[in-house]
């Protein structure tokens, strides 16, 4: 990238910044170490563990992300959506790359299904071990990136309209579950215990699709051009790359 926003800073200004930053680093180290030595915070480990049976999952990190602090995750997905909408507003996508040669295409045909499979596994295992929607979505998006590198300008994403629905699905289901619990007389995103595990899996499944779509769309880097061909909707339709180029 050749973009530079401002003229090169002067040497004296640079020196001042360095001195100030060294002072800041020293202050932070000193404050943190003094505090850690005398009165470290107890953390929320015990509390998170104690409430785990009421959360619907057995992986405490997933319990925090999808239950205790579910609102953070809902907003985080909205941030990702904002980034994609912003990217789309900045112009159309670039055409992408020429069709890959045999070696890359062969590798992609092998790696992409593996990524999808691993993504599904991570999604499922997230309830009890490290894993979950973001990790799964990131793997699916990696599959999309490989497809684009291999010459598919849309990185296996469906047409624009379907992309828009996929982009909001995870956030929409999340909000709908919240509204459903609200209407049922509980609070927003206050899951009934018997359903909590399944509701979290439902949210995470759609969140995975949305995260994969949003990350891939961000990589494509612009609004998809109007398509002539009728594209197949659905993130999972990762067709094997065309071996002839």
């Amino acid at each position: 990238m050749r973009n530079s926003l401002e003229p090169k800073p002067q040497r004296s200004a640079a020196l001042l910044v360095v001195v100030l930053l060294i002072l800041l680093a020293g202050l932070l180290q000193w404050v943190y170490f003094t505090h850690a030595a005398t009165a470290p915070g107890a953390g929320l480990t015990a509390l998170a563990q104690a409430e785990l049976p009421r959360s619907g999952v057995t992986n405490p990190v997933t319990a925090v992300l999808l239950n205790y602090r579910a609102l953070d995750t809902l907003l985080e997905l909205s941030v990702l959506l904002t980034a994609m909408l912003g990217i789309w507003s900045l112009g159309p996508a670039t055409p992408g790359y020429q069709q890959a040669g045999a070696v890359f295409a062969g590798l992609a045909a092998w790696v992409v299904p593996l990524l999808i499979l691993s993504g599904g596994y991570l999604l499922w295992i997230g309830a009890k071990a490290p894993g979950g929607a973001f990790q799964a979505g990131a793997l699916l998006a990696a599959a999309g990136v490989i497809q684009r590198l291999g010459g598919d300008p849309r990185a296996s994403l469906p047409n624009e309209s379907a992309q828009r629905w996929l982009a909001i699905a995870g956030i929409g289901i999340f909000a709908l579950v919240g509204l459903a619990t609200l209407v049922a007389g509980r609070g927003f995103l206050d899951y009934p215990l018997a359903w909590a595990g399944w509701l979290i899996l439902l949210i995470e499944t759609f969140a995975t699709l949305t995260i994969a779509t949003l990350l891939t769309a961000a990589y494509v880097g612009g609004q998809p051009p109007p398509s002539q061909t009728t594209a197949t909707p659905g993130m999972h339709r990762m067709q094997a790359p065309d071996r002839k180029a």
Binding site: L44, L47, A48, E51, Y68, R69, A70, G187, D190
Partner: peptide, 13 residues
């Protein structure tokens, strides 16, 4: 006041 998801702070928001 409201505790989201009925999780009182510090665990909830």
């Amino acid at each position: 006041q409201l505790a989201l998801g009925d999780w009182a702070p510090p665990l909830g928001i």
